[in-house]
Amino acid sequence: MRLPHPFAAACEELGLSALLSAQQLSASSQGLLKMRDSLSPQLGLAVDMLCLGRTVSLDAAQDTFGPNLVDWMGSTGLATVTDSSIQLPNRRLVGHLGRLVFVGPAGSNAHGYYGPDSVGLGKLLLNARGRCLDLFASTGAQSVLMARSGDEVDAVEINRELKGVFELNTAINGCDDRVTALWGDALRVELTGPYDTVSLNAPLFPSFGIEGVDQAADGGATGNSILRQALKRCELTDHGRIFSTMTTVGSPGRPELDWLAQLCRQLNLAFQVIPTGIGRLDGQSRFSAELVDTLAESSSTSADTLTQRLRAHWDTHGIDRLFFCLLVGGRATGSKATVTVLSNFEGGRGWWIG
């Protein structure tokens, strides 16, 4: 039986693993901030350093984790260590449904993004089985989750800057012998299907034709361009399942799903659509304002100019909503290559805004 990684064992002993698992505070830091002052000194220091990105005393960190683990954090590049302090500048520790994983800063849409959609997708993967595929794996949150119940995981990620933290996550979760990283473009890298379980978290941010959006976040004009291409690469076993995040444009109560229905017919798949949120696209809502600000920052275009261009685009194409969803699918039986929406789209906020 494999012994726990020393870092995981230390987090368990401090109570940090239990705290993150019980509260499920991973998608944001707000809950941790609210309870920070009520924590014991050592647990509070661990939260400050590992979860909130705060600089802490090197002596206090060594007292809490021991000199060997502090040296390990520095040698892996996880932490910046000086003669008197230690800080994790670009990483934070989250509890992902019973796994401990390091991800990017809160609010980042790329380079280790982790948000509410990551949690929602992870819940669907809790019973992953057989040979697993994690497309757009990022820091490996879904990979280490699937490795808990699956036999083996192929994880595909294009951003090699995440290699260190990906390997760190598989190591501290004791699954580095069952997870194989494939570094390359998820739309081109050679895959060795068929797979029993597929996790797919393609870039979801809709650019509406605006150029300059970070490629790691850009899901194309409607938010699902990359997803469409990736779904065609998912070779399944007879009883294989695909679990995916999705955004798509539409009008009130009517998400644009014709593209997904057509894909189901082409690939003989059947999907269930689970609504999770709606964002109004009218140039006046808070959601629209935040989306415009993000696009303006990415494209170096003024927000006022973009607002006019986007409102004209939305009016021309009859778009006034962006729908957020989770997908569950597999091979269709008989002639039932269909798309089924499981409930009405009534409310909820966008994953990466707000």
Rank of each mutant, 00 (worst) to 15 (best):
M1E: 14
H5E: 07
F7D: 02
F7E: 04
A8Y: 10
A8P: 09
E13V: 14
S21L: 10
L32D: 02
K34A: 14
M35L: 15
R36I: 06
S40M: 12
P41S: 10
L50V: 05
V56N: 02
D59V: 11
A61E: 00
Q62Y: 01
D63C: 07
T64S: 12
V70A: 01
G77P: 06
G77A: 08
T82H: 09
T82K: 07
S85I: 02
R91W: 12
V94Q: 02
G98V: 10
F102C: 09
G104W: 00
P105C: 07
G107K: 06
S108D: 08
N109A: 14
Y113A: 15
V119T: 13
L125A: 06
L125D: 04
A128Y: 03
G130W: 10
L133R: 01
L135P: 02
G150L: 07
A155Y: 05
R160C: 07
I172Y: 03
N173G: 05
G174V: 09
C175L: 11
D177L: 12
T180S: 15
A181Q: 07
A186N: 04
R188A: 12
V189W: 04
G193T: 02
N201K: 13
A202C: 05
S207Y: 05
E211V: 13
Q215W: 14
A217E: 10
D218I: 01
G219F: 02
T222I: 13
T222M: 14
N224T: 08
I226V: 14
R228C: 12
T237F: 09
H239P: 11
M246P: 01
M246L: 15
T248H: 04
G250S: 08
G253M: 06
R254A: 15
L257S: 00
W259P: 01
L260P: 00
A261E: 13
A261F: 10
R265T: 11
Q266F: 11
F271N: 00
F271Q: 00
P275Y: 06
P275L: 06
I278E: 03
G283D: 01
Q284L: 14
S285D: 07
F287P: 02
S288N: 12
A289I: 13
E290D: 14
D293R: 14
T294V: 13
T294Q: 15
L295F: 03
E297T: 13
S298N: 15
L310G: 00
R311M: 11
W314H: 06
D315L: 13
H317C: 08
F323W: 06
L326A: 12
R331N: 14
G334R: 05
S335K: 13
K336M: 12
S343T: 07
F345R: 01
E346M: 13
W352R: 13
G354Q: 15
